[in-house]
Nucleic acid binder design. Structure first.
Lengths: 203, 203, 203, 203
DNA sequence: AATGAATGAGCATTCATTCAT
DNA sequence: TATGAATGAATGCTCATTCAT
């Protein structure tokens, strides 16, 4: 009789995948995508290299999956903040602060997700990732404009610009010097710059 | 009579360096720094590998030299615009437009210069490069504040933010899709966003 | 059921290491350490280069391992003789003879172990190797002095000198001419020279 | 009319050879034979690589010539001492001391001449070099035996043994540690050991 | 004679992927 | 299913020697 995977087997298979993904993520957080080899992944998961290929068809696909997991988590955290209560003004500030603080706390990972080149497939995912961030900011800005808190403007661009500002001001320098200390005032300055670009102010 | 290197010989030697640099730049423009190997460089220049090492002591140093050549050219072009005549407002707009247009015309190169990691030496140069851009913007902003065209604010951050905006809005997406067409209106939108963040406006 | 490495597999793995070590030793015996490259080792073992690196992390470490194997074997053989029964006089003679005979039988190898420089790691091992020989001779001499068979003298130097004599008289010339024939009388002469330097004689 | 080298030209040619040899020797004294490349030799002599090949047909032949120059100088210095006045006993002691002291003062060179492997041609010369030393010691010993200062024995071996003792006790350790300090007492110990092996002593 | 740019085989090392067991 | 040994193309770099000028 033909072999049929039981529920139990499926579960085992799934838990193996998760184990591998977790091991891979640990490695990436420690040394970026480039530090992950199929050999050291298998090793840290306590299985054979060949077995890794039972769960992931290639290193590229493994990377894409990891990238999606990590970025979806990050995005959902910011999204949570963005759809919370408060005025658009308050929520924008909070979203920027959350994005910034998370980048500060896991520098290697932020760098890997935002900048580190891996392969063309990852670049495609990376664009989606950055667009997802921008979409969140865009939603807040749109609402702010509707509520006349922000002045009318191309919100697509404004949202993308905010992502660019945070990446340039916070994440890029973090990769230069391991000991860089990002002060909270820097986050405030970013917030103020963005708010200024978005709001109507009077003399 | 002893052979003495003539001017012609010297010129030839120099022209070989330039040939190699050009071949390397072509390759980088086509596939980024990562696509350039000493073997394929030698091959595309029609010479032997060993010969490349007569002109450049190591791949790292070759890369640094190329990086400096390309970035110094870019920076000097923007600087030219920035110290030109006109109000800070006009010059800022012009600097942004020039930076943007150049990025649009050589997409792969812009990506390589702004984003692509290569090695630690290049990262050091890249930081200088981005700071050079920021310094140009900062100077305009400082002057604009002095002339009361722009509102007082941390100009370091404002300048860095502008670099981040352009990188995010223009360079990153350009590398994804070879056919992306950047409209001039996009540049205008960037200008407006930045100006809004910098200026005092009245209802 | 999951695949588990059997004893047989382990044995095979170990036997591959031994195969590689043997191939390497053959090559070294034929042409010295300098004649061994990772490529020709892989080739002579009938495997791929990459595979060699599964068994030895680097060429240096492979060399160190081979050096230790060969020298430890040599030293233990002499040590056996040195701690055997008989007077110090007899055991010294026997140790010299054994050292000499072994050198005669594997000329290239003796040269490689005693003289051929490879890299700093090997030089460190070589020093240990020569000191191990000297320590054996020293022990015999110390005992001989205690038993008044030998005259009191700096035994460190005497032991080192004996190593030098054998190296110079036997090993060095052997590498010059493949057909050199070392007569047993030469060994006897060495023994007599050493004994003379060590003993009290009367007119 | 055919070009004929004049005396002047010949002299120039000869002086060039000497310049090259001197430059090469300086380099060898600083870093051993292995540190000398045709490129850095040409460079330090201020001429082109190709020109070096006008004076020396190959690197091997250049090395052989340098080796001969250096070793002949060393040998002649010891020979001077050996044929000087004094009893064989005194002259042997003096020859050992001179050999030892010279080795101490130019460690890198002594190592290069006595041990450093270069190529088969050098090994042949090295054997001659060591035999030349031995020949000097042999002459003294022969004379000492004739004068009944030394006891009858195979003088070939005795002479070779002395060379081996000095190489092992003095030159080998010098190469291990750049800061090794050879005490004069060590030389005295060598002398005493050798004398003991050669002389008739009474209780 | 002198130049020095050019050669190119050679070397140690890495790592994603395969496949016989 | 799982294993893990094996693969081998790829890479940066060196250096004695040649030869057109």
């Amino acid at each position: 009789m033909a072999y049929r995977p039981t529920e139990k087997t499926k579960t085992r298979k799934e838990s193996r995948r998760i184990l591998l993904l977790n091991c891979a993520i640990l490695q990436i957080n420690a040394g970026g995508f480039s530090s992950l080899t199929m050999d050291n992944l298998a090793n840290s998961a306590g299985i054979a290299v060949g077995t890794v290929y039972k769960y992931f068809d290639s290193k590229s696909l493994l990377f894409v999956e990891i990238f999606k997991i990590l970025t979806e988590k990050e995005v959902s955290i910011i999204r949570e903040v963005a759809i919370g209560c408060g005025t658009p003004y308050q929520r924008l500030n909070e979203a920027i602060a959350t994005f910034s603080r998370r980048a500060m706390h896991s520098q290697k990972q932020s760098y890997a997700l935002i900048f580190e080149p891996v392969n063309p497939m990852i670049e495609i995912e990376r664009l989606k990732y950055r667009k997802a961030y921008a979409a969140i900011f865009k939603q807040i800005i749109d609402e702010g404009i509707a509520k006349k808190e922000f002045i009318p403007q191309p919100t697509d661009l404004a949202a993308t610009a905010i992502v660019g500002i945070i990446a340039e001001v916070l994440i890029r320098p973090l990769t230069q010097d391991e000991n860089t200390h990002i002060e909270n005032t820097l986050i405030e300055k970013i917030q103020e710059f963005c708010i200024r670009a978005l709001t109507i102010r009077q003399l």
